[in-house]
Amino acid sequence: MSEEEPIGCARPTGGPVGQHEAEEETRQSEESKKEKSSMIQVGKPAPDFTAPAYHKGKFTSVKLSDYLGKWVVLCFYPGDFTFV
């Protein structure tokens, strides 16, 4: 599920999975951009993504769809070392 990643000086990046075409389309018009931002709905599939991660002393990569079959809480927050 999460193998350790080789770490260089470049900052590892991830992103949405399988949405490159959709992203191209959103660049074409503001209207389709709005449609994309309203994609999130309860009862609808969570958009898949990969992201670099720090987990128990290792740098790994996490893909949301690897967690199918489990309950997942996906939490976003403004920043490390913040106060809340």
Binding site: I40, F49, A51, W71, V73, Y77, P78
Partner: peptide, 28 residues
């Protein structure tokens, strides 16, 4: 990813406090 989930705060350049419960079928 935050933009895809509609919680990226463009003005501040950070994610808002978004929390999603996703079931074993991958459904929010």
């Amino acid at each position: 990813v935050g933009t895809t989930y509609g919680i990226y705060n463009v003005d501040a350049g950070v994610e808002n406090r978004g929390r999603f419960i996703i079931d074993p079928d991958g459904v929010i």
